[in-house]
């Protein structure tokens, strides 16, 4: 039965966390984590510990994305090693605390896996975010989740990029999974969106349980959308937005945008078209939180990723 080369045996995944409230106004994750903190039966699996955790409680209480700065951008060495001071930003303080509980990032002591639950105002459906294209375990998990959710779609966004990758909260773990479900307004919880998020977690945990039980996962490939470039809104000299996402692009996350297609529309009715040379697949189209990040959408291209056969090393050890 063992077709996996011994090199592809991976350590079992025993310590798992589910983060909600990294952005305090993305309420599906906030409500699910609060629920699981009260009653965790749904997320427990054999052979592993699953810890639900509210990462930014003050932002949750305020129902704001963050208090001082975006928690999901400060898990870099510089912030994590910053000397604690009186006027330290709240989210930097939180990041260090999270790193001490679930990390330290990059160390053997770090948690094996973190799911981080997010919502978007964009029509991205049930999206999984992959940070490292060489992470066979996570690619295998995404392959499993995509199959389990089919025929519903479950796009994978790959943020492995030299400039555009950001230092996420979940990156303290050995394997990190971003869960991004939309469309849902910030500060609102929709039953349908919450349910979609819940399904992803169910299948993700099922996968880990199977993996830990010794099941071998043969080589697989998945289609992912690889981040290419951010696109800002057209702005005037004062930095004010002067044109909005065109109605033909609105809600069309993951759909092909071809050269010449409309992208923005201004208040005088002028249309700005996509003037690239090749087809891209926009996503995070008109995300509320990204106006301040000067991002109207991101361009992605489709790429196929292949993961090697994986199997937990646990059986050989026992």
């Amino acid at each position: 039965m063992a077709f996996c080369h011994v090199d592809h045996e991976l350590a079992p995944v025993r310590r798992v966390a589910i983060f909600g409230g990294t952005h305090g106004n993305e309420l599906s994750g906030v409500l699910l984590v609060k629920h699981w903190l009260e009653n965790s039966a749904e997320i427990q699996r054999v052979g592993m510990v699953v810890k639900p955790f509210l990462t930014n409680p003050r932002a949750v209480q305020k129902c704001a994305r963050y208090i001082d700065c975006d928690l999901n951008r400060v898990f870099d060495t510089e912030h994590l090693s910053e000397q604690e001071t009186e006027d330290m930003l709240y989210e930097v303080k939180r990041a260090q605390k999270i790193n001490s509980i679930f990390g330290p990032k990059g160390s053997d002591d770090a948690f094996d896996l973190i799911f981080d639950l997010h919502n978007t105002t964009s029509n991205m459906g049930s999206t999984l975010i992959l940070e490292d294209l060489n992470d066979d375990f996570t690619v295998q998990m995404f392959h499993y989740i995509k199959l389990a959710l089919s025929p519903a779609s479950c796009p994978v966004l790959l943020i492995d990029h030299s400039n555009l990758k950001y230092a996420t909260t979940r990156s303290v773990a050995k394997h990190s999974v971003g869960v991004e479900v939309g469309p849902q307004s910030h500060g609102v919880v929709r039953a349908d969106i919450l349910d979609n998020m819940r399904r992803i977690i169910k299948h993700g945990l099922d996968f880990v349980e199977l993996f830990n039980s010794g099941k071998e996962f043969p080589p697989c490939s998945i289609e992912v959308y690889k981040i290419q470039e951010k696109v800002d809104y057209p702005r005037n000299e004062a930095g004010e937005i002067v044109a909005f996402v065109h109605h033909h692009l609105q809600d069309q996350d993951w759909q092909a945008l071809k050269p010449g297609d409309p992208v923005f529309l201004d208040l005088d009715g002028n249309v700005i078209v996509y003037d690239g040379d090749y087809t891209v697949y926009p996503t995070f189209v008109n995300e509320a939180a990204y106006y301040e990040k000067k991002q109207a959408f991101i361009k992605t291209v489709k790429v196929t990723l292949t993961a090697k056969c994986i199997r937990s090393s646990v059986l050989n050890q026992e």
């Binding site: 469309p183 307004s185 909005f244 996402v245 609105q250 509320a288």
Partner: peptide
Amino acid sequence: GPQPQGVVRADALK
């Protein structure tokens, strides 16, 4: 509506 807070949708604006 519907339009999320902090977002401009072309259809709602129209």
